[in-house]
C-alpha cells in the first residue's frame, strides 16, 4: 500500500477564505485524506476534535492568536498529533520556540511551498509519523553564520544537514544524493559529532536541526 491511499484526517486553519478553500480542495483531491477546516483560533479549538486528527495544518498569523498556540493546545489533547505551520514570510525560527520533545512532530512550510502538492503531502505524512520538516526553499535560503558550527561542516555534511532539516530519512537522503545509505549514516554521525549533538539523545535529528536554524541566517 502506498502512502497516498493511507487514511489521514487533517485540520486546516486559515483565516483567508480563498487560500483556505484552495488548501481544502487540494487536500480533498488526495485519496484517503479527510479535511476539517476553520477560519479562526476560536473556531478551531471549539469545533475540532483533536483526538480524531492526525495532522493540523495551521496558518501562523491569525486575527485571534497564532498557529503556535493552537498547535500546542491541540497537542495537549492529542500528543500524537502532527502540526504543520504555514507562514507567508520566513518564520522558521518559530521552531526554536518549541521544546525539544515538542519539535519532533512540528513542521514549517512557507505559503509558497504549501501550494506544491508534493511538498505538502510529504510534509503532512512526515509530521504525522513524528518527523519534522522545514520546506526546501526556506532551508536553501539559509546561509551559515560566520564562526558557527554549521559553517565549520564540510560541504557534504552541510548538504546532509539541510536534507535532515527538510525531514528526509537517511534512505531518502541516500537516494537524493546518489550515495549508499551507509555513507549517509557516516555523514550523519560525523555531523552530529561536529555539532556536539549527543547521538543517544531522544531525537538527535531535532537537535541538529535546531542548531542549523540557530547558526544560519
Amino acid at each position: 500500500m502506498t502512502s497516498s491511499v493511507r487514511r489521514m484526517r487533517i485540520g486546516v486553519l486559515e483565516d483567508q477564505p480563498l487560500y483556505r478553500e484552495m488548501l481544502e480542495r487540494l487536500l480533498r483531491s488526495v485519496p484517503g485524506f479527510e479535511v476539517v477546516s476553520a477560519g479562526s483560533v476560536h473556531e478551531a479549538l471549539s469545533t475540532w476534535r483533536a483526538a480524531e486528527l492526525d495532522v493540523a495544518l495551521l496558518d501562523f498569523e491569525l486575527p485571534d492568536g497564532t498557529g503556535l498556540d493552537v498547535g500546542r493546545a491541540l497537542q495537549q489533547r492529542n500528543p500524537r498529533l502532527g502540526v504543520v505551520l504555514l507562514s507567508a514570510v520566513d518564520r522558521s525560527l518559530i521552531m526554536l520556540e518549541l521544546d525539544q520533545h515538542e519539535a519532533e512532530r512540528w513542521s514549517y512550510l512557507s505559503k509558497h511551498a504549501s501550494i506544491s502538492t508534493g511538498t505538502l503531502i510529504r510534509t503532512l505524512h512526515a509530521s504525522s509519523e513524528g518527523r519534522s520538516v522545514i520546506d526546501h526553499a526556506t532551508v536553501k535560503a539559509r546561509v551559515p553564520r560566520a564562526g558557527g558550527r554549521v559553517e565549520a561542516l564540510s560541504e557534504r555534511q552541510r548538504e546532509v544537514l539541510a536534507l535532515l532539516a527538510e525531514g528526509y530519512t537517511n534512505q531518502s537522503i541516500a537516494d537524493r544524493l546518489s550515495l549508499a545509505v551507509n555513507s549517509v549514516n557516516n555523514h550523519v554521525n560525523a555531523l552530529y559529532i561536529a555539532l556536539g549533538v549527543n547521538e543517544s539523545s531522544r531525537n538527535p535529528r531535532v537537535s541538529a536541526v535546531r542548531i542549523f536554524l540557530e547558526e544560519t541566517r
Binding site: 497564532t66 503556535l68 525560527l93 518559530i94 526554536l96 520556540e97 546561509v143 551559515p144 553564520r145 560566520a146 564562526g147 558557527g148 540557530e214 544560519t216 541566517r217
Partner: peptide
C-alpha cells in the same frame, strides 16, 4: 513581541548579517 521577550530578542538578533558571528 506578543510571544515574549526571548522570541522577540531572538528574531531581532537573527537579522544580523551572516558574516557576523553571533551567539544568543
Amino acid at each position: 513581541l506578543d510571544r515574549g521577550l526571548v522570541p522577540a530578542a531572538r528574531a531581532m538578533v537573527a537579522r544580523l548579517p551572516a558574516s557576523i558571528p553571533m551567539r544568543f
